[in-house]
């Protein structure tokens, strides 16, 4: 259970986003650091919880660079230009952070193989290396039988796995999954949990951020949880989303272990916080 935290991998400062003058999220501050465990390769798994309409999807779009913030900034590690001794940060841009939406959107005119090939088009790998990488992932993620199928010929789980691999290939270390568990049966939920663990186990810098309405699932899976809700200022509830609570499960000794009474207590605490915001 022992761990150490190293350098910052995600830094969100005073972030706010407005559409047509209407503020959706405001004053969002997030700091996540690279976590290291002695014997296990561990990436970061961050859950974002909150009631519907509190701005979770807008926050994700800002974190992926798909919408420009009205104020504030989102900094991520500039992995390409960083060294062990000299860590550099950069403003997030489109394509830096992988994003899998609730519908597991893929190109409708590309087969799994073609989609993955496209995701690697800007990679510096040789054609042979690209081919090997695609085949390795297709095999590891159980997509061999459907490698030449189009998205509308795939099951929801297959589409989701393809979307995740596509983003891993294109974006690298950061991955956001918007409600990856919604509408899935118990088997598919386990598949997604495995996928998240798999991404984390691949590299210590890998960072998965996901949202869900299932608080128990979030508590059992994440090592850091942010609750987004409407803040109450001077006794009055405001109508924009912000971080109303942050729970570091590592510090609380709840991360990377089986669900127990401590987790249950946290679930109740988060539930109360969500209902009041």
């Amino acid at each position: 259970m022992s761990y150490i935290v190293k350098d910052t991998i995600l830094y969100v400062e005073n972030l706010s986003v407005a559409y047509d003058g209407k503020v959706i999220i405001k004053d969002i501050n997030i700091t996540e650091k690279d976590v290291h465990r002695e014997t296990v390769t561990t990436g970061q798994v961050i859950a974002v919880l909150g009631r519907s309409g509190r701005g979770k999807s807008t926050l994700f779009k800002a974190l992926t660079g798909l919408v420009k913030p009205a104020t504030g900034q989102v900094l991520i590690r500039d992995i390409k230009n960083s060294t062990e001794m000299d860590i550099k940060a950069k403003q997030v841009e489109e394509g830096d952070v992988g994003f899998v939406d609730q519908k597991y959107t893929l190109f409708r005119h590309k087969t799994i193989y073609q989609a993955l090939k496209f995701a690697l088009r800007k990679s510096s790998l040789s054609e042979k290396e690209k081919e090997d990488k695609i085949n390795k992932y297709i095999q590891e993620w159980g997509l061999e039988k459907v490698r030449n199928q189009y998205p509308n010929e795939l099951s929801g789980g297959q589409r989701q796995r393809t979307a995740i691999i596509e983003q891993i290939f294109s974006s690298g270390s950061y991955m956001i999954l918007d409600e990856p568990f919604s509408g899935l049966d118990v088997g598919n939920v386990e598949d997604v949990k495995r996928s998240i663990h798999k991404i984390g186990a691949d590299h210590t810098l890998n960072t998965v951020i996901f949202s869900t309405h299932d608080i128990e699932l979030a508590v059992s899976l994440a090592d850091s949880i942010y609750v987004i809700g409407y803040p109450t200022i001077n006794g009055k509830m405001e109508h924009y989303g912000t971080v109303v609570g942050h729970f570091d499960l590592k510090a609380m000794q709840l991360a990377w272990k089986d669900f127990d009474a401590g987790h249950l207590q946290l679930v109740e605490q988060i539930k109360k916080l969500m209902l009041s915001s």
């Binding site: 779009k61 992926t64 798909l66 489109e94 394509g95 952070v97 992988g98 994003f99 939406d101 519908k103 959107t105 893929l106 190109f107 409708r108 496209f118 995701a119 800007k122 596509e166 983003q167 294109s170 974006s171």
Partner: peptide
């Protein structure tokens, strides 16, 4: 759907 444009943008 907007998601298709966003998907393309996330793939650089």
């Amino acid at each position: 759907p907007d998601e298709e444009f966003d998907h393309a943008r996330t793939l650089k």
